[in-house]
Simulated scan of single mutants.
Amino acid sequence: MPDWIRCLAEACDRSSQSAIAKRLGVSGSVVSGVLRQTYAGTYETVEKATRGALMGDTLVCPVLEEIPAHVCLDHQKRARNFSSASSLRVKLYRACRGGCIHSRIKTTSAEEGGNAE
């Protein structure tokens, strides 16, 4: 059993699947599916969230510097749609599409050409 799944299971034993799912930024059914080995989604994303939220893994964001891995995933979710609500949101939107090695956002041809606003 991978260490991150063991950590996820132990956290759920100490708390609840829904509480841990909320901490990870996923649904309770995702946590349940991962623990039952029936999850049809990408395990890599759940692993990154678990390692960040429960195991203390960090990474270097080009905008925010060192942050927990699950915080990076949360910012990527928000950066899927452009928002000029703050200069930070704009910077994160651009960084997540501008070649950040941690980004899981797929860009379109228009975005790659710089026409994405």
Rank of each mutant, 00 (worst) to 15 (best):
A40Q: 09
G113P: 08
G99P: 03
E10Q: 09
S27H: 12
K22L: 03
T58V: 08
K91L: 08
L8K: 13
S103W: 06
Y93V: 04
I20K: 05
I105V: 02
G25Y: 08
D3V: 04
N115S: 05
D74Y: 10
G28I: 01
S32E: 00
V71P: 00
S27N: 06
A95R: 00
K106R: 11
P2L: 14
G33H: 12
A19M: 05
G33K: 15
I5T: 12
A49C: 13
E111G: 08
S86D: 06
E112G: 15
A110C: 04
R14D: 14
R89K: 07
A21K: 00
G28H: 03
P62H: 02
T45K: 12
D13F: 15
S27Q: 07
D3G: 02
S86M: 09
F82K: 07
W4M: 15
C100S: 13
E111D: 04
K22N: 03
E117D: 06
R36P: 00
V46S: 06
Y93G: 07
W4V: 14
A116L: 12
S32R: 08
S32H: 03
L35H: 09
S87H: 07
E65V: 13
R80I: 05
S27G: 09
A11W: 04
A85H: 07
F82V: 01
R89N: 02
A19H: 02
G99W: 13
C12R: 06
V30G: 04
G28A: 07
R89P: 00
T42N: 14
D57P: 08
W4K: 15
A21C: 12
Y93L: 09
S103P: 02
C61A: 11
Q17S: 06
M1C: 09
V60E: 00
R94V: 05
L54N: 01
K106A: 03
V26F: 07
L24R: 04
L88W: 04
S15D: 11
R14I: 15
M55W: 01
E117Y: 11
R80F: 12
P62R: 02
T38D: 02
L59D: 03
S27Y: 09
E117M: 11
F82R: 08
G41R: 06
E44M: 08
K48R: 15
A69R: 10
T108R: 14
V90G: 09
R6P: 04
R36F: 03
A11N: 11
V90D: 02
S103T: 06
G33S: 14
R78L: 14
E47Q: 13
D74A: 07
G113Y: 13
A79Q: 02
S32I: 00
K22P: 01
V30D: 00
R80A: 07
Y93F: 14
H75M: 01
E10C: 11
G33F: 14
E65D: 13
S109A: 13
A40Y: 10
V31Y: 01
A21H: 01
S15G: 12
D57Y: 12
E44K: 08
L92F: 03
C12T: 06
H102F: 11
